[in-house]
């Protein structure tokens, strides 16, 4: 500590952020505040390419906020977000987003196929109709999530799991390289959970990057290879086995130990990651 000795220090003003062109997402000092309360504070992390990353943390840790701030849906008080070293506006077409299931009105008069076609709208462009090719591509995405038979059903008549699959298919239809998903496993049945994780792994194999807000500590280890432990600040980030240590979990979840013990066991069983 030399701060006690009065000594002048200097630093360059022209601060170029270090570009990490190969990292699909790098977040620097991102701060989001609601009035005087911070929601995210000095969040800093990079996501390696082709990773399947979970954002984990207790309620109110700012997980959804982080995703929304990255996508520019809520304004950040400070900090920078870069995609492949470029600002959001230049990278938008390469990014897909799956919002929380509760965020839309499922009574809306559209069919599953209509919803998936929405993923193609940007590719279709203004003033043009969704062509047969685009519809076929959307259909292929539905098939990939096992929903081909229900493509013409009104979305409100699908089960929760099926709705989530439709959302996933819509993200697939965007043909993005980086996907943000907000709680894709919330309130879905076991079969859908398996189907979704299968698709996510396929995407990862294709070299795409997936970032999910995830709430189930027990499955983080088996589903994701990279994790960000968040509690307003980044508690830990890195490969799942190194991130989700007992110590880190205590740091972000506080004293809720029964849950943590379970998670600890799950991680212990997992062994070294690939």
């Amino acid at each position: 500590m030399n701060a006690t000795t009065p000594q002048l220090t200097t630093s360059a003003l022209t601060a170029h952020p270090e570009h990490s062109a190969e990292s699909p997402l790098s977040v620097h000092a991102l701060t989001v505040a609601y009035h005087r309360k911070p929601v995210l504070w000095d969040v800093d992390f990079d996501v390696p390419p082709a990773s399947l990353m979970a954002i984990v943390g207790p309620n109110g840790a700012g997980k959804s906020t982080l995703i929304k701030a990255c996508l520019g849906l809520i304004p950040a008080a400070a900090g920078e977000v870069e995609f492949w070293g470029e600002p959001l506006r230049r990278a938008r077409s390469r990014i897909g987003y799956v919002p929380q299931r509760e965020s839309v009105d499922w009574d809306f008069p559209v069919s599953a196929l209509d919803v998936v076609c929405m993923g193609r709208y940007r590719k279709v462009g203004w003033l043009r109709r969704v062509s047969k090719t685009h519809k076929a591509a959307a259909m292929a995405c539905l098939e990939r999530v096992g929903m081909k038979e229900l493509s013409h059903r009104q979305i409100g008549k699908l089960s929760g799991g099926q709705q989530q699959r439709v959302f996933l298919a819509r993200a697939l239809a965007q043909e993005a390289e980086l996907y943000f998903m907000d709680e894709p496993f919330a309130g879905v049945d076991a079969a859908t959970e398996r189907a979704i994780i299968g698709v996510l792994r396929d995407l990862q194999r294709e070299g795409k990057t997936i970032i999910c807000v995830h709430h189930d500590l027990q499955t983080v280890g088996s589903y994701f290879d990279y994790a960000l432990l968040l509690n307003m600040r980044v508690v830990a980030v890195g490969p799942t086995s190194q991130t989700l240590t007992q110590e880190n979990l205590v740091k972000s979840y506080g004293g809720r130990l029964t849950l943590l013990e379970q998670a600890g066991e799950a991680i212990a069983q997992m062994g070294p990651t690939r």
């Binding site: 220090t9 200097t10 630093s11 360059a12 022209t14 601060a15 170029h16 270090e18 800093d44 400070a78």
Partner: peptide
């Protein structure tokens, strides 16, 4: 560090 340490990440510019 000495003056002119080079680009400092995270400083507003």
């Amino acid at each position: 560090t000495s003056p002119n340490i080079g680009p400092v990440r995270n400083l507003p510019h």
